[in-house]
Computed example of a mutant assay.
Amino acid sequence: MSNASFIPVFAHRGASAYALENSLKAFEKALELGADGIELDIQLSKEGTPVVYHDPQLSRLVGSNKLVNECTIAELENFKLGKPWRRLFSSYRIPTFHAVLAWANRHQLPLNIELKSTILDNKDALIDMLHGLILPKGSHFSSFHYELLEAVKRYAPQYETALIATKKLKWDLLCDYKAIDSVHMHKRYYKPRYLEACVASAKTCRFYAVDGNEKFLTNPHPSVIGWITDFPDKVLTVQQRPLR
């Protein structure tokens, strides 16, 4: 069996191919399918309460033009989520991060916590969230925003941090990104140049948008420590791991 068997599979926004993204149902489905961890997104409410939601605006899943951080936590928890023709009868709601964390700690299921853009406007809320934070073993933080990962390293240095790669990332200077331990990349970055840059800077990497059909899954590069996928069952099957 290849060393792919030992690479953790994180369910992207939960098992989002099978249930609404970032919902407790999607997280429970990921657990049921045998995922090694959950990837989720954190935004902040108007009061600074962390909630699990991907977009900075509410239009796609709520049908409102408001931004997440313009709404109180009471407003956010009351919104019905889903596609327009299903939303009226939807039971999906925006969960708080603390509710999801309690669930994850109960099951000891690692979290990949992506810190989103609304946190840039309220770093004090991030610091409050980090204070005394206890996450399941194997959990880590990721973000497109390096300064948020710097805050994590300062206030919760025990947790791994991962920068999500963009075109602006200076690969030749990757070792200068002192506040990160790893890089998260879209699978299109699975190329020698980027993998070797991780090795040269002593950083590990995870790849997202993986769907189970990629050839590299059966013989992954040594720097790879995780897959992030909407289809955890398919990736687990490729790794010849039994589903729950």
Rank of each mutant, 00 (worst) to 15 (best):
D233H: 15
P157H: 12
I164G: 05
D55S: 10
S64E: 13
E39C: 05
A151D: 12
D176F: 12
L58P: 08
S182N: 11
L115S: 05
C205A: 13
V51Q: 09
C205Y: 04
L88S: 15
G132A: 08
F207Q: 02
I38W: 14
G226E: 02
V224M: 07
G138E: 10
H131P: 00
G212R: 03
A209C: 12
A26M: 07
R206C: 14
T229D: 00
R206P: 04
I38Y: 09
I164N: 03
W171H: 06
R193P: 00
S23E: 04
K123L: 11
A104K: 06
I134W: 00
N219K: 07
D211C: 13
L135H: 08
A162Y: 02
D176K: 11
T166Y: 11
L40S: 04
R60H: 10
E75F: 04
V9K: 01
K234E: 01
I127M: 04
A15H: 01
D211M: 09
F6Q: 15
P136G: 09
M129K: 03
T72W: 03
L174W: 08
K168N: 12
N105R: 15
C205H: 02
E196C: 03
T204Q: 13
L111M: 13
K116V: 14
K168S: 11
R93D: 09
L76P: 06
D172E: 13
I134M: 02
F79H: 10
G82D: 01
A15N: 04
P192M: 09
L24P: 03
V199C: 05
G14I: 07
V68D: 09
V51P: 07
P157T: 14
L40E: 11
Y190C: 02
A26Q: 00
V199Q: 12
P242V: 12
R106E: 15
H145P: 00
D230V: 06
L243S: 12
E150H: 09
I134F: 02
L111N: 09
I228M: 01
I94Y: 12
A125R: 01
L61V: 06
P56Y: 14
A209V: 03
S16A: 08
R106G: 13
E47S: 03
E150S: 14
D41L: 15
I7C: 00
M129C: 14
